[in-house]
């Protein structure tokens, strides 16, 4: 008898924990690092009397690898467009029940019509869209063309970085020659490789993580990257901020749409639908768009937005959504690897 007592206690403890968990329904959200203001999550918790657990990833690939290697329990995930297609093909996604998502009618019809990665938005609801651009330190670089050709400049050698992202950078090189960022044509890709190898001579490194910080510290004068990372790193650094220009290249390039999807394995599908619907409530979405200063795709939210975004939706007209390339992505992988490893 004496020996069994700790087991009983343990069982009791489990029972207690178990019952606590049942009282408050919990939604598990898996999203990019700091990609949703916590006030929005708290507001959702308050409105529906639930708990939201927010976990983060840094890249789509990381998210997909984790889900594929067995990570379970997530309800809502935020893949970019090409990964919506992939996850749908892999059977990971639950078709959305549009009757619970009336706020689809708030979304920009022009934006929805450009979506190829999920025709008719069967599985995904758009969240935020944007494109990578280039930040320039005006104090050090007096004159420059608003184009990726800035990376051809040998006079800026060692003072520039390119994103460590094959679709972004090859996409930019392809676009410069007027090709699609989704091409699978070998000759076009080899020409793009040549362009990027020329840029590689002038950059100090490929960087998708700390370009914002390094730019803000004055380490680099020209960095390719995302506007929100650059401006975030410049917060509180007024002199540097006034010297910074961020532009989207005039030739265009690849753009992204990050979307909300519900996993087939989700155990809280109804709550997940409520979450998607909540994000596109005009005032909630306005808070999100203002927080990141990214262009709003929710027309009903526009009247609540009081600050200026880093760039406008119309600036993205010359950009193209990245699509899933299927097996043809092997060509990209091979070429990007050659770029990274060859001198």
């Amino acid at each position: 008898m004496k020996r069994s007592r700790p087991w009983i206690l343990l069982l009791l403890a489990f029972a207690l924990v178990g019952s606590c968990g049942k009282e408050v329904p919990t939604l598990y959200v898996y999203n990019f690092t700091v990609y949703m203001p916590s006030e929005v999550l708290r507001a959702f918790e308050k409105k529906y009397g639930v708990r939201v657990v927010y976990e983060e990833y840094t890249t789509n690939e990381e998210m997909l690898t984790k889900l594929q290697s067995g990570a379970a329990g997530y309800d809502v995930v935020f893949p970019s467009g090409d990964h919506v297609s992939i996850m749908a093909k892999l059977g990971l996604l639950e078709p959305l029940d549009k009757t619970q998502l009336g706020n689809f009618s708030n979304l920009d019809a022009g934006v929805l019509s450009r979506i190829r990665f999920d025709p008719g938005n069967r599985y995904s609801m758009p969240y935020l869209m944007g494109a990578a651009g280039i930040a320039v330190n005006k104090a050090k670089v007096k004159a420059f063309e608003p184009s990726f050709t800035v990376f051809d400049r040998a006079d800026l050698k060692g003072r520039m970085t390119l994103l460590d992202d094959m679709r972004e950078i090859l996409g930019a090189a392809l676009r410069l020659k007027g090709h699609s960022v989704n091409t699978t044509n070998e000759a076009e890709l080899l020409a793009a490789k040549k362009t990027v190898m020329g840029w590689k001579k002038n950059i100090q490194r490929f960087d998708a993580e700390s370009f914002g910080k390094a730019f803000a510290a004055g380490e680099f004068w020209v960095v390719s990257g995302y506007a929100e990372n650059v401006w975030k790193a410049l917060e509180g650094n007024e002199p540097m901020k006034s010297n910074t220009v961020f532009f989207l290249p005039r030739e265009g390039g690849s753009m992204y749409m990050d979307n909300m999807v519900i996993l087939k394995s989700s155990r809280h599908k109804e709550l997940a639908h409520r979450f998607l619907q909540f994000v596109h409530e005009p005032e909630v979405y306005a808070r999100i768009a203002m927080h990141f200063q990214l262009p709003s795709v929710n027309r009903a939210a526009d009247r609540f937005i009081t600050n200026t975004p880093h760039y406008r939706l119309s600036d993205l007209d010359r950009f193209e959504f990245k699509e899933d390339l299927g097996p043809a992505v092997e060509r990209y992988n091979r070429i990007w690897q050659e770029i990274r490893v060859e001198n």
Binding site: E61, E62, T65, M166, Q204, R205, F206, N333, Q337, R340
Partner: peptide, 20 residues
């Protein structure tokens, strides 16, 4: 690392996550 400081560890991580 610089633009050419690529070690085996980085290559493995890239093949696992990015190139899948």
């Amino acid at each position: 690392g610089g633009r050419n400081s690529f070690m085996l560890g980085n290559l493995i991580a890239r093949e696992l996550t990015v190139s899948r």
